[in-house]
Design a protein around this nucleic acid. Structure first.
Lengths: 339, 339
DNA sequence: TTGTAGGCGTTATCAA
DNA sequence: TTGATAACGCCTACAA
């Protein structure tokens, strides 16, 4: 009996398809013995109701999409862990998509999802001042979206972020207190909201301490490691900052490499602090000071918000579109130590 | 016009559903103008053929499952990148599942997939001397499986691994040449095949250099960081190895932490080398010597093998079940430097 | 080049 | 407690 389906099973068992269906769907309108007999026989024949057929009937996919800029990154991989955790408990599947920070990929993938492929979407975005209609179309199809970390302000969806402004302010202030006066701000994409918020914290801390803001010290980097290496080499040689506040982990690493090669001592000649979820930051040479976001918890929270929205959809009452802000932690280590 | 489907579209356009279907499936049996008119109208109404309905007809899901022990790990996240890369080009979706190295989760997830949910599976396994019938059932349903890195030898599927034996041999020999005589082998699960192969390389290198194998130096660790910390503290204090060969990145990090706390100097008092895909290994204090597997390439290769199998299924001719072995690279850094 | 119609495998409704 | 049946949305063989 190849390619078992509910009909063949029904024939074999001399029973109707509906009863079999009931056996699999936890219905109580079924005799216990019948149910057991069916499940045993089904197991023996390696049968499970076809997921796609069920979906077609129910319009529930039990699947959610996770769209993120990168996977090989401690922040995002920990966030995925959190999402996975929740999804698993709910019996949901996870569809993963990586945008490489390319806005067009994000758009094209979201558009693909616009056909009932998933029940909901969790994403960390890759664009900013763009046309976000592709997301509004999802709304119109009742596919809830939850943003985490990198969000679009103009889209009315649930959001999970961290207290980026405060953290940036504190980190910058910390560098100032250790004596830095020329603090470079490293960013990958100045224009995205998260880059802007973090920069605002940086600027306000400077202001508070009467250190003039210098445009030259805002270093716009790329996604290409080699390009970043060149940019940073030039910065360290020519602009000569005495402190680095990196809004992205990757750029802190690049700075370490450049310092190694140029023989610049950290923290003696240059102090560094960075947003980073790297677990082994204490093991770096020197140990890296970090602003560490609760990546795992953010994933958990984002998933929970999504499930709230999904359950709302079933029984709408309150507004599940909330903005949750979790706190990052500042870890001061050797890389930004004072004398 | 809410909940657009092919029928409503047909009515609106005064055209049959088949023609619309043709417009979306690259059929050539359709007038160019008609096609354009349909696609334009569909786009305007935000319509895309329902994925689940198409699948039900075609029995093709355009989806593949990736099952791995962990996500927040440089090796696996890079491998996912490779898989994603290939899948994207083929227009496939990726369903991600993490087992946490728990065999039961692997079994239960694979069983869930046994209902036409995916076209194929790529996995790195989490068990060993177990009953693998749950995988054989997939075979019987013609769902191809490709293993990478951690494989089940007894399952006849395509496999992608690295030259673990050689690498382990070389790494151990390297430690011996720098003067180590009491080299501890750190492993998470001795019994899984990859742990065994790596250990064999270790043992054979010892033998070649006439260093007796000491069972006490094989350290079986756990998945819990705290437990590992305790185990390793005890090992370093009581068994006092002069070299560490770690089969898993995580355990090398744990060793670093313990050495920091016990004040054991690396590499002076203890030399370390580890399997690891960590990009910033050179930035550790001291820089970590690594055996680095081509994680990304392994992902690419695994995905390619899977697609070969899928295409075979369509037109069976040769046997796509192959075993590809890629080479790891040894990077000798400060952590295992001689005097 | 286009249209008609049946069926993919499941489940909910209704009737028995 | 069980059974018959229609419908979910799409695609393809066949007819026109």
């Amino acid at each position: 009996m190849d390619n078992v389906n509910i009909k063949k099973l029904a024939k074999e068992l001399n029973i109707s398809t509906s009863t079999i269906s009931r056996a699999f769907n936890g219905s109580h309108d079924i005799n216990k013995d019948t149910k057991e007999r069916i499940l045993a026989f089904a197991k023996q024949h390696n049968f499970l109701p076809n997921h796609y057929a069920s979906n077609l009937r129910d319009k529930k996919t039990k699947t959610l999409a996770v769209i993120i800029p990168e996977i090989a990154n401690d922040f995002f991989s920990q966030a995925i862990n959190g999402i996975e955790e929740v999804a698993r408990k709910k019996g949901f599947y996870i569809l993963l998509y990586r945008t490489d920070d390319v806005f067009e990929k994000e758009v094209s993938f979201v558009n693909y999802l616009n056909n009932g492929k998933v029940d909901g979407i969790i994403m960390s975005v890759s664009g900013e001042a763009n046309d976000h209609n592709y997301l509004r179309q999802l709304e119109s199809k009742n596919v809830p979206v939850v943003f985490f970390d990198r969000v679009y302000e103009d889209i009315d969806a649930a959001k999970v972020t961290t207290n980026d402004y405060e953290s940036s302010f504190d980190a910058t202030e910390h560098l100032l207190k250790t004596g830095c006066r020329r603090i470079a701000y490293l960013v990958v994409n100045k224009s995205i909201s998260i880059g802007q918020v973090r920069m605002q914290g940086y600027m306000d801390a400077l202001k508070k301490h009467n250190v003039p803001f210098d445009d030259e010290l805002v270093i716009d980097c790329s996604n290409d490691e080699k390009v970043n290496y060149k940019i940073l080499t030039k910065v360290l040689q020519e602009i000569k900052p005495d402190g680095i506040f990196s809004s992205v982990e990757r750029l802190a690493f690049a700075t370490y490499y450049v310092c190694n090669d140029l023989g610049i001592e950290i923290p003696k000649k240059l102090k560094i602090i960075s947003f980073s979820s790297l677990g082994i930051a204490p093991l770096l040479s020197p140990a890296l000071s970090t602003i560490t976001q609760p990546a795992y918890e953010m994933g958990i929270k984002a998933a929970n918000l999504l499930f709230e929205a999904l359950e709302q959809k079933a029984a709408p009452s309150s507004n599940p579109k909330r903005h949750v802000i979790l706190k990052s932690k500042l870890f001061i280590r050797k890389s930004s130590a004072g004398e």
